[in-house]
Design a protein around this nucleic acid. Structure first.
Length: 671
DNA sequence: ATCTGTAGCGCC
DNA sequence: AAAGGGCGCTACAGAT
């Protein structure tokens, strides 16, 4: 049954789809309920610029649609803050509730549950209509959605709105069966807790020093134009006619008509390739996806060859830098400043394949854009444009070596643990001492100062290996031979046998299970998409006599080899390689994400406990870094609380070597 | 004119 | 046999 809760009954009296209820009746109905399904309809996406049209409370039997234009949502504050609230995509509704100072404590988000259950599976839809069909076998009509803004609370909208809460209990019940089966209860609990924090982060917003940003934009733009002119001039002075064309403006009064102009569009890699080839650069790289050679003017390809045309290439690299800054980190940030708060309120996505957050995006319907606050250039010039609210300071805290320490704990490698426990100093020097016998007896400080090249090799090797790289990768990165790369690789694992053993186990377990298990606390998993297909393909290559046949056909380059066996083998091995690399990396990256989420949860609880919500803000979070925007007077206390929250969360996952977090109190975003 | 894929590069 | 993980944004190129 659908009930309407409104103070202008007369407007709706003719409608037969629903009855009426009072606020008291709604509250009374849910008195003996532990769970309340909740949803809102709004005039738009921005909680500062748009309003609540309706709020729906319900279960599978009854749905109450509250007309928010005549009934104050705050009358339901107690209900919302005391029950377990089931929502689909809670983050959206929470921001509108926060605006009313309503802060639900217990949340079950059906969308997050579905994300947790299907992490890693592509094309798994999580929109409500899909969930309703998947779990309740009911078709939902979403066509009216686009009209809500125009129609307001029409009868059709009321029925539609009621439907949005009708199935949530049922979906939750059925999801929970799977959650238990797949042992994902803690992962889901963490994400249900964290959605409150993430909504608060989006709600908080990040203040941008507009005039400083604009000044920076102007400088960058001037630099870009100047550099481009230099590049053009270089071409014009070079006599390379194929790159020079005539100004084609068909304007007889244009005095510049028919003047020679540069024919290269510098932001077109395709066009630049032609020039660089002429200048004798080697632009060939192996394509990661296809394995075939292709041309590239990637900075890391060009930089080592800068001596082939120093003047031009130096300018070109500069140009690329300015081009990136101007296009990606310019005007769009100004556009997204909210007129109500004067801050940037972007959007985050809560559960990626590794359990990390992502940030940014664009609403395809409304065309609203959201900037990515997780890849802001880290130089002071840029970051100092991000500031605290009026009268406040920022607290910036990040974990020291978060992923490294997570790996140390997960692998339980004795040497790595010993290194951290004893606080021996520089990790890369330590690795260098392990993989270069001649450095074994030296002091780590001496290695750092006197053997920086070997330290650099160690650094690159450790980094590559932790992400699943091999001797080949090390060789590529450090421009050494594959043999040397392999040597470093082997030396690394000889030095850390516990790590070698750990990686071996993790790979085997993943290929057996069909999912990557991140850690034993949340038990978060990334499922391997199309795992059955992979197994079937792999099985073919493991059958008796396959390799005999393969080698025979390969030797004569038969059609069968070229069209079937070759591609099959390549596919199986590249797929397996990818799975194994992911198996090594995801637990590190994903556990780190769990830790940072939990730290956010602890901090959020602290803010509620100390009645600091809406006084202390959380403007951003970047993987291993959490920011607060807080009144100066309490900054010291809050910095300690943030540090404590982060380290407490760390302890839950990292028991052997504990994580430390370092807070900095500052006027602008810095390290 | 609008869409899609790719190259390149910013961050952790 | 392939060969470092995760993400999002922008401009260009090519297609429709």
């Amino acid at each position: 049954m659908i009930y309407l809760v409104t103070n202008q009954k007369s407007l709706f009296e003719t409608n037969k789809h629903f009855s009426f209820a009072t606020v008291a009746e709604v509250i009374e109905y849910f008195e003996d309920h532990s769970h309340v399904a909740f949803d809102t309809e709004t005039t738009g996406f921005d909680p500062y610029l748009c309003q609540l049209l309706s709020a729906q409370f319900g279960d599978s039997k009854n749905q109450y649609v509250v007309d928010c234009s005549t009934v104050d949502i705050c009358l339901f504050k107690k209900l919302l803050e005391s029950k377990i609230i089931i929502m689909q995509n809670a983050k959206f509704d929470l921001k509108f509730l926060y605006r009313k100072k309503i802060v639900p404590i217990n949340i079950y988000d059906t969308m997050l549950a579905e994300r947790v259950l299907s992490t890693g599976i592509y094309n798994h839809r999580k929109a409500l209509d899909y969930l309703v069909y998947r779990y309740c076998k009911k078709e939902m009509d979403k066509t009216i959605r686009g009209n809500i803004h125009k129609e307001g609370l029409s009868s059709a909208v009321i029925v539609y709105a009621a439907n949005d809460v009708k199935y949530l209990h049922d979906i939750m019940r059925k999801q929970m069966i799977k959650i238990k089966e797949q042992d994902l209860y803690v992962a889901l609990f963490l994400d249900n807790e964290y959605v409150k924090v993430l909504a608060y982060i989006e709600f908080s917003g990040f203040k941008l020093d507009i005039s400083k940003w604009q000044l920076k934009m102007e400088e960058d733009n001037n630099n870009l134009l100047e550099t481009r002119k230099d590049l053009d001039d270089w071409i014009l002075n070079s006599n390379m006619e194929e790159f020079i064309k005539k100004d084609s403006q068909l304007d007889m009064f244009n005095p510049n008509a028919n003047d020679p102009i540069c024919g290269i569009l510098w932001s077109s890699s395709k066009q630049v390739v032609k020039l660089f080839k002429k200048l004798g650069l080697n632009t060939e790289v192996k394509d990661d996806k296809t394995g075939k050679m292709r041309d590239s003017v990637d900075a890391k390809i060009v930089r080592p060859q800068i001596n082939k045309s120093p003047e031009l290439l130096e300018k070109y690299l500069k140009y690329k830098g300015y081009d990136k800054i101007v296009s990606t980190y310019g005007e769009s940030f100004i556009r997204q400043i909210n007129p109500e708060t004067n801050k940037i309120h972007t959007q985050y996505t809560q559960i990626m394949n590794t359990g990390r957050l992502s940030c940014g995006g664009k609403n395809k319907i409304t065309k609203e854009e959201y900037v990515n606050l997780q890849n802001i250039p880290r130089d002071d010039r840029t970051r100092s444009c991000f500031i605290a609210s009026e009268g406040n300071v920022l607290i910036v805290a990040d974990y020291s070596g978060q992923e490294q320490i997570v790996l140390a704990n997960q692998s339980q490698d004795k040497d790595i643990i010993n290194f951290y426990k004893k606080g021996l100093g520089d990790m890369h020097s330590f690795v260098a001492s392990k993989i270069f016998p001649e450095l074994a007896d030296l002091d780590l400080k001496e290695i750092k100062s006197k053997h920086s090249e070997k330290r650099q090799v160690a650094k690159g090797a450790g980094f590559a290996i932790n992400y699943g790289g091999t001797g080949y990768t090390i060789a590529e990165n450090l421009s050494i031979s594959i043999e040397q790369g392999d040597k470093v690789y082997e030396a690394y694992f000889d030095a850390f046998p516990g790590l070698k053993d750990h990686f071996k186990k993790v790979k085997a377990k993943t290929l057996k299970n069909g999912y990557i298990l991140f850690n034993n606390f949340t038990k978060r998993k990334c499922y391997i998409d199309s795992f059955d297909e992979f197994k079937a393909k792999r099985k073919v290559t493991q059958e008796n006599g396959f390799w005999v046949k393969y080698n025979k056909e390969k030797a004569i380059k038969s059609n069968e080899y070229i069209q079937e066996l070759g591609p099959l083998v390549r596919k199986v091995f590249s797929w397996k390689g990818l799975l194994e690399r992911n198996a090594l990396n995801y637990p590190i990256q994903g556990t780190s994400a769990d830790i940072t989420k939990m730290a956010g949860v602890f901090m959020f609880r602290y803010l509620i406990e100390k009645d600091l919500l809406f006084k202390v803000f959380m403007p951003n979070v970047v993987h291993d870094e959490i920011l607060l925007d807080c009144p100066k007077e309490i900054a010291e206390t809050l910095a300690e609380a943030l540090k404590a929250s982060m380290e407490e969360a760390g302890k839950v996952f990292c028991k052997t070597v504990e994580l430390t977090a370092v807070p900095v109190i500052t006027d602008y975003w810095t390290h």
